[in-house]
Write a protein that binds this DNA or RNA. Sequence first.
DNA 1: GTCTATAAATAGATAGAC
DNA 2: GTCTATCTATTTATAGAC
Lengths: 196, 196
Amino acid sequence: MTDQSTETKSRIMEVARVLFANNGFDGTSVREIARLAEVNVASVNYHFAGKEKLFHEILLKGHADCSADIQSMALAGANLEDVLVEIFRYFQTKSHDLLSHFKMMMSTDQKIVPAGEDMGPPGGKAIVEIIIKETGKNVTEEDLHWALKSLFSHTIHMSLMYNCCFKNNAVPYSSREDIEKGIRRLTRIVLKELKV
Amino acid sequence: MTDQSTETKSRIMEVARVLFANNGFDGTSVREIARLAEVNVASVNYHFAGKEKLFHEILLKGHADCSADIQSMALAGANLEDVLVEIFRYFQTKSHDLLSHFKMMMSTDQKIVPAGEDMGPPGGKAIVEIIIKETGKNVTEEDLHWALKSLFSHTIHMSLMYNCCFKNNAVPYSSREDIEKGIRRLTRIVLKELKV
DNA sequence: GTCTATAAATAGATAGAC
DNA sequence: GTCTATCTATTTATAGAC
């Protein structure tokens, strides 16, 4: 593969990622991707085997990138509270990716999101490690799964809501500061529950 | 408006709701709606002012219906644990509506989801009433918002995940029973936190 | 109000020259 | 690998008869 080919391929992926995020799969045309990426229409079908394969490849890459980011946040963070707040802030800076990823996951179209592929909580293992570090080794696997799901679902859901319907609305106790306070408070009581 | 007209209009809405839920806005054609609703293609544009207005009307109706359903569950339920589990089960039976509604909310296309419209947690007020009933009158407004958001976000997020990517995958501790146990456990510690 | 017919635009994909 | 040109199919929307 030549340098020009690699460059063309990655430029298509970058542009398509943004367009899919904003307009969905059906709302994005290959022609628009080609126009904004400044490549020829035919090259999209040349480098990827059609529009769906392109979409799928972007989805997998997005999940892998997010997992890596969260893993390094988890390794560098001081404690679980801080890490979860940092993840919440991270999703603010990646709101388009986050929203597009969930829209893709929520697509019931199995041809686009193949069953069986790893689409679980990104960086989940690294977060579980922190929980173990903060609660001791005596927690059961069931406890760990419950804590991970409880904390991650809240963090993710608040990230999603904060970036769509609640973003421009004046909802009480839904400012960025209030959400972060809420994440911290929830983290504390979940960890406390695991210690008893 | 004649009886035939009312019938045609509601049949269009019912069919379109299912199609939008399954295939999204762009993935649904007016022709398909008309075909399945057994009405003429032109009548969709006659009864609604175009495809977008139809979509919008369905979105508002879905939120109102869901609010009413949750409100009656909240009024009839014995306690908060039971009500939240019941809401989780309710969303299993309405998975298409749930997914479509969130995909709509997560759409950044302002022409479809107008800013400023009430798209907050459906039945939120009724759930807050239960929390007050179970914790006493001394909880602050901030406490109530935190508890509502913590519990609702988990319930909703688990409902969403259980109906898409995790549905057919064998994820440990993610069966319907495990999720319900998790919701109950989280509810108990949140209520306990509000009582101290 | 409902129908047929059609306008006008756009889509994904590919063949074949270079 | 990239280009132009084009095929085939589908879309939303509307005009006009009934």
